[in-house]
Write a protein that binds this DNA or RNA. Structure first.
Length: 924
RNA sequence: GGGCCCAUAGCUCAGUGGUAGAGUGCCUCCUUUGCAAGGAGGAUGCCCUGGGUUCGAAUCCCAGUGGGUCCA
């Protein structure tokens, strides 16, 4: 059947007397030493045989098993490699979290562009997979965080030499299976019980044969032989429907689940008890879960049964629970009551480990990317704790795992957790109030809370429908929750498909040109050079000049391009922009110097110096920020400039004014220390081994060798130009901080003369303010405060006086014309005052049942009409008639209306007509 | 990176273009008293900032700032 069937006919299987069989139950092909065996041995074709009956000689703890594995492979010629961070986004852009050990070596090593850190190598790589999050705790075997133990060998075909970063074959399929057998045997496994199931692997554009290793019902390892790549012309069509062909490189990619091996060695009911027994014990005690012997027995039997059920999503779990309950002869509800608290506790332990990995590796909770995943996991964990009654603070629980995992930044981890839990608490509180108000409203009307409202609550306020239902229940409101709730949420986010921005590269004009030799790293202080014009291309505006070598820095790494001039003996052209395409540097000029000309290049020194100061300052500021705010500080983006630069850093809180000052202090100390700024070009593996992934603050550069910039103790991979000594930066001034998104703070700063200008700007503003207030700058805050207070007090006083004035006017008949309108009296009066005063006067007049028509010629013409109840006059209508006469409009409630228009001259006439208008309105 | 929501009294929030509100807290007085409480009166506001539309904007539009939230 399998297109790769031939690939599994290993000499090793032959020599060891394996037989290839087809599982009668699931149809899978597998290899076994046991000629009597029938099924493949993997659930659902088998059950967990090791629960209560460990499959290895000795019980191992997680740490012991990891060490046993790594040293086994060390003894068999592999070099042990330190694990990579779980935040895969730090060295690759196509993946947020590390989901497998091979992720560490993609894409550069697997493609053969970069040599592996060792070959062959062995590693135990912490991984996080969010896909199974709902199953964690329930199935007994799913975990979100796990360590994938692995050995990898990177091979290249013998017939291709020099093209790839590694050569020849280390070992391939036979040896890989043999090593697996030997490892199992060394653990005391009965290898006649092991089955090797054929299961071709496809993923991420690569593919190859793969083997699942099953022992006593548990999949212990997957051996992947990555050797094909997607190729429309390829001769093999694999299970994803695409065609593949063989590559020149072929990679042994194994994955041994540390947790499962540990579990196998202990035979506990679930993997969780084997992996973090102390934490499970702590949580059980904390939640007050105490089972009788009989109950313990039931739980264990249920656990064992869960093995032979194919559980892939939550619906299945619920169905499976029914089957298990039937098998055990108890009620489903009873079973659920028994195991659900345990499931919650297992999940809490696992989630806390996930959080410890995430925060330990510097992920900061946020509304974007990995930060968002971390936030979701944390909130979920907090909910689980609340449901099951675990009252230990979450930061303590995460810390238990962080300690076990050996993280050194545990204080920061706890800070992050505490701050995030607090944010969640606030969200819940806000949400709770909101839901209560809405629920009461609908309860009163006797309607269910509509789906639209639920969507809004979830999408904009983060309130789960469950929570709405719960609160609504308390006030007696129903909730209209459709089954496809989450797809409705998704529909809300559907935006019209954006036209794919086609990268209009397709520019092959430069294909024949050699890569431009770049001089700007050789001596970063030089600003003049000589070169030959290789070619000139006309552009819409100006020209692209290509030279054989250049000192002009092309835009890149957040550093803008150099400006300057190119000149021959007779002509000079301005360079206004410099770009780089496929290694060819294009100088955008305003003139054509002619192909083959010999030119002198001169860089705009002032501009370049400023850029260099800002670039070095960027390194200094991020280093200082890390010192002040914590080890988790990482660059999330940067842009250098002439007058100021900015860096975005990941941080879980706003940066306070005090912290800004401290960062500024540390940064300027580094400047004053005047240490040298140096560059080097080490092999990337050496650089990574020595400095870790913190090197890549500004992105991951390609190539085998990378350029490192040392500024004081700070080391970063960087392609920019830098000053020679930190003192050359002059001074660093942080101008502002800004929260660019949740978990990302932007620091804007200026260096050198720009720092001085920035300071002067702020000073100018302060001095100007001081001058206006006629006080010294130091007294500005106090004076401003006093003025503001006085200003407010005067506003109140004016209001008071206005009312008094209005009362006096109304009482004293102050010049208003009195007319009779039906039963009532109306006062028509002109006072050229502002709206507030007109209103106050009208109010005062209306106080004793008199109709008031007040007009003003300030700002055109304005009217206020008050018509107390019982006068039979609609103030709104009166105003709109009057306002029409001054070219405007107006309106308001029947007892009090305002209006006006631009024609102030017509005011008198309008007021003169007012009695008529009043009477007409009365009669209407 | 994208979407959505929010910003009004110390706090929590109403307020659909026409005189800025409620609850709570605060102050004063009264009643009662072991505490809690009850009654009456009072003070609170650049309605986030800046533009625009309008006779008129807390309200509508645009931009900014600050916060929240969902998704990849």
């Amino acid at each position: 059947m399998s297109a790769l069937e031939e690939e599994y006919r290993l000499d090793y299987f032959e020599e060891e007397g394996f037989e290839r069989k087809e599982c009668p139950s699931c149809g899978a092909h597998f290899w076994t030493r046991d000629h009597d065996r029938e099924t493949c041995g993997e659930p659902p074709c088998a059950e967990y045989e090791f629960v209560g009956d460990p499959g290895f000689d000795e019980p191992h703890s997680l740490e012991e098993m990891r060490e046993a594995y790594l040293s086994f492979f060390e003894d068999h010629g592999h070099e042990r490699i330190d694990p990579y961070p779980v935040a895969a986004e730090r060295w690759r852009e196509d993946m947020m979290l590390t989901i497998a050990s091979i992720a560490d070596f993609q894409p550069l090593v697997t493609s053969g562009e970069t040599p592996p850190p060792a070959n062959p190598l062995t590693i135990s790589q912490p991984c996080i997979r969010m896909q199974d999050i709902d199953n964690v705790g329930k199935t007994g075997r799913h975990t979100m965080a796990f360590e994938m133990m692995a050995h990898h060998a990177f091979n290249a075909r013998e017939d291709v030499e020099g093209e790839y970063a590694y050569e020849g074959e280390v070992y391939w399929k036979d040896r890989t299976v043999e090593l697996c057998d030997e490892l199992l045997e060394s653990m005391g496994a009965d290898i006649t019980e092991v089955t090797y199931i054929e299961d071709p692997w496809v993923g991420g554009g690569n593919a190859g044969p793969a083997i699942e290793v099953i022992y006593k019902g548990l999949e212990l390892a997957t051996l992947v032989f990555m050797c094909m790549e997607r190729d429309p012309e390829g001769e093999y069509e694999l299970k994803d429907g695409n065609r593949y062909s063989f590559m020149d490189t072929y990679v042994v990619d194994t994955g041994y689940g540390l947790e499962r091996w540990t579990w196998m060695s202990q035979g506990t009911p679930t993997v969780y008890e084997a992996v973090y027994p102390e934490m499970i014990a702590f949580l059980r005690e904390n939640a007050g879960i105490d089972h009788t012997e009989e109950e313990v027995d039931l739980v264990n039997r249920a656990a064992r049964l869960s093995g032979n059920l194919d559980i892939d999503d939550v619906d299945d779990v619920e169905a499976a629970r029914g089957e298990i309950a039937a098998e055990l002869g108890i009620d489903v509800a009873e079973l659920r009551e028994l195991v659900e608290p345990l499931e919650a506790i297992y999940a809490i332990a696992d989630h806390c480990r996930t959080l410890a990995y995430m925060f330990g590796d510097g992920i900061v909770p946020s509304n974007v990317e990995t930060g968002y995943l971390a936030r979701m996991v944390l909130r979920r964990t907090k909910r689980l704790c609340d449901t099951v009654g675990v009252d230990a603070p979450l930061d303590e629980l995460v810390d238990m795992q962080a300690e076990r995992l050996g993280y050194e930044n545990r204080d920061t981890i706890r800070d992050v957790v505490r701050s995030e839990v607090e944010k969640y608490r606030e969200t819940l509180e806000r949400g709770g109030r909101r839901v209560e108000a809405i629920a009461e409203e609908y309860a009163e009307r006797g309607e269910p809370i509509p789906t639209e409202e639920l969507l809004e609550l979830y999408d904009s306020h983060g309130i789960q429908p469950d929570m709405v239902a719960e609160i609504a229940g308390e006030v007696g409101a129903e909730v209209d929750r459709p089954d496809d709730f989450y797809s409705l949420v998704a529909a809300r986010h559907d935006t019209p498909e954006e036209a794919e921005a086609v990268e209009g590269s397709g520019d092959d004009r430069f294909d024949d040109l050699p890569e431009t030799e770049t001089l700007y790293y050789d001596d970063q202080q030089r600003t003049q050079f000589e070169a030959v014009v290789l070619d000139v291309f006309e552009r819409e505006e100006g020209y692209d000049v290509v030279l054989d070598q250049t000192m002009f820095y092309p835009e890149g790494g957040g550093q803008p391009a150099d400006h300057g001039t190119l000149s021959t003996d007779d002509a000079t052209v301005e360079v206004r922009d410099v770009q780089r395409e496929d290694g060819v540097v294009l100088h955008r000029t305003d003139g054509d110097l002619g192909k083959g000309e010999f030119v002198k290049g001169q860089i705009d020194v002032t501009r370049r110096r400023r850029l260099m100061r800002h670039h070095t300052a960027t390194h200094i500021v991020i280093h200082a920020a890390r010192e002040v705010l914590g080890e988790h500080i990482r660059q999330a983006g940067a842009q250098k400039g002439i007058d100021s630069s900015r860096i975005d850093v990941r941080h879980y809180d706003r940066i306070s004014r005090a912290e800004v000052k401290e960062i500024e202090g540390v940064a300027n100390e580094i400047v004053m220390d005047n240490t040298s700024v140096s560059q080097e070009w080490p092999h990337r593996n050496e650089a990574e081994a020595e400095h870790g992934f913190d090197l890549y603050q500004g992105g991951i550069p390609p190539g085998t060798n990378i350029r490192l910039i040392h500024v004081a103790e700070d080391v970063q991979a960087c392609g920019g130009t830098h000053v020679a000594r930190t003192g050359d930066v002059g001074a660093i001034k942080i101008r502002s901080t800004e929260r660019v998104q949740d978990g990302v703070e932007r620091l804007t700063f200026a260096a050198g003369d720009a720092a001085i200008s920035a300071t002067q700007e702020v000073e100018d503003a302060l001095y100007e303010a001081a001058e206006i207030l006629d006080v010294s700058p130091q007294e500005v805050p106090e004076t401003a405060d006093r003025f503001f207070e006085e200003w407010k007090a005067r506003g109140k006083e004016i209001d008071d006086l206005r009312e008094q004035l209005a009362a006096a006017r109304a009482g004293g008949g102050g010049g208003g014309e009195e007319v009779a309108v039906g039963e009532a009296t109306a006062v028509i009066q002109r006072i050229d005052a502002d709206m507030d005063e007109l209103q106050a006067t009208a109010n005062a007049v209306a106080e004793d049942g008199t109709i008031a028509v007040i007009g003003s010629a300030r700002d055109g013409a304005q009217f206020v009409v008050a018509a107390p109840e019982g006068t039979g006059v609609d103030a709104g209508e009166v105003v709109s008639e009057l306002a029409a006469r001054v070219g405007g409009g107006g309106g308001g409630p029947p007892d009090f209306a305002q209006g006006g228009g631009p024609d102030g001259e017509a005011l008198e006439e309008a007021l003169a007509d007012a009695p008529d208008v009043l009477r007409r309105v009365l009669n209407a």
